[in-house]
Simulated assay, not measured.
Amino acid sequence: MSKFLRLLRRAGSAVCFCLVGGLCGGQASADQPVRLESAAVQPTPFQRRIAQQNGQVLKTVPGTPLNGYLTRPPGEGPFPAVVVLHGCTGLSSSARKSWSELLSSWGYVVLMVDSFSTRGIRETCDRVMPADRVYDAYGALAFLSEQKFVDPRRIALLGSSAGGSTTLEAVRLGGAEKLMERKFKAAVAYYPNCSAANGDMAVPTLILIGELDDWTPAKKCQEMMARRSGKGSPVQLDVYPGARHAFTAPGNKIGAEDYGHRVEYNAAATERSEKDARVFLKQAFGG
């Protein structure tokens, strides 16, 4: 084999390693595939106490391997970062592209988490939100915290629809966040289901929802805000007039029925929400 071919093979191996590990220096390509794990599930103090009373020992449940897609802005960093969780239909290429491009253009490292592919799940729109996704969020937080180009003190969580509901649960005061060593700095939830949330959050939280959403109604989020105890961090609710569920998805420009609910893109609400989210994250990250 010629010297040139040997060098070419070595270069190719290095490229493959970068694509899998996401740890190469310099600027990473957009949508760079990475592998990570969900956070291990720790037994709660109550569960441990009950187990001890019964002569049992509870073990930590190891994390699940996950696929992710990493995008970073130009430069060495360290940069603030955002973990993004998809909705109940999974991580589409269009959502992956739009969120990665938008958030990285604001100067953030972006990690899109695919919660379904390694679990063999296609969608969960007619099921209860899997609790595992909360641990996916914290596994992504741990992954980003270990990257030299990320500021581990400035990592936010953002989710839409079912991912937004997961976001609220992940930062619920006294919930799973209490068991985690690393904490998110802030959270943004697009059109989440607020029915089960008590509104008390461990970090500053922004909720963005459409006035006409009939899948995850804005009224439920308004009721959640009214019953907040006042504990924890500030929570901001922005309701956009005339907007329906999935108002940020340009693929739904003419509107459609999805699982018995109306989903429809709304350019005005999308633009307004992007401005609101950008200001919120900038304030949360301290400038």
Score class of each variant (00 low, 15 high):
28 A>W: 00
221 C>E: 03
12 G>D: 01
241 P>S: 14
106 W>H: 08
121 I>G: 07
196 A>T: 09
253 K>I: 09
23 L>R: 15
32 Q>K: 01
285 F>C: 11
114 D>N: 12
52 Q>E: 14
272 R>Y: 08
63 G>M: 01
81 A>K: 03
154 R>G: 07
92 S>G: 13
32 Q>T: 15
241 P>V: 11
165 S>F: 01
105 S>A: 15
159 G>Q: 00
211 E>C: 08
175 G>C: 04
277 A>K: 00
143 F>V: 03
179 L>M: 13
189 A>C: 09
70 L>G: 05
248 T>W: 00
70 L>W: 03
113 V>G: 00
64 T>A: 07
222 Q>T: 13
283 Q>N: 15
284 A>E: 00
228 R>Q: 12
187 A>H: 09
179 L>V: 04
78 P>G: 11
120 G>A: 02
87 G>W: 00
49 R>K: 13
203 V>P: 13
149 F>A: 05
208 L>H: 03
284 A>Q: 00
56 Q>C: 01
5 L>E: 12
256 A>M: 14
144 L>T: 05
176 A>H: 05
233 S>K: 14
72 R>T: 13
265 Y>V: 14
112 M>H: 09
275 K>A: 15
183 K>H: 15
95 A>W: 07
149 F>N: 11
13 S>K: 05
261 H>S: 14
98 S>I: 12
210 G>F: 01
267 A>F: 05
243 A>F: 06
262 R>L: 13
155 I>R: 07
137 A>I: 01
179 L>T: 12
164 G>E: 02
129 M>W: 04
100 S>D: 00
80 P>K: 05
50 I>A: 12
10 R>A: 13
79 F>M: 05
157 L>V: 15
141 L>Q: 06
193 N>D: 15
226 A>R: 15
106 W>N: 11
118 T>E: 15
227 R>S: 10
187 A>T: 10
287 G>C: 06
250 P>T: 00
224 M>L: 10
179 L>F: 06
6 R>V: 13
251 G>R: 06
281 L>T: 06
10 R>E: 12
69 Y>W: 15
143 F>I: 05
215 W>F: 09
104 S>V: 03
192 P>L: 00
207 I>W: 06
242 G>F: 00
207 I>E: 11
173 L>Q: 09
129 M>N: 12
103 L>F: 02
120 G>S: 05
66 L>K: 07
3 K>L: 13
166 T>V: 15
30 A>E: 11
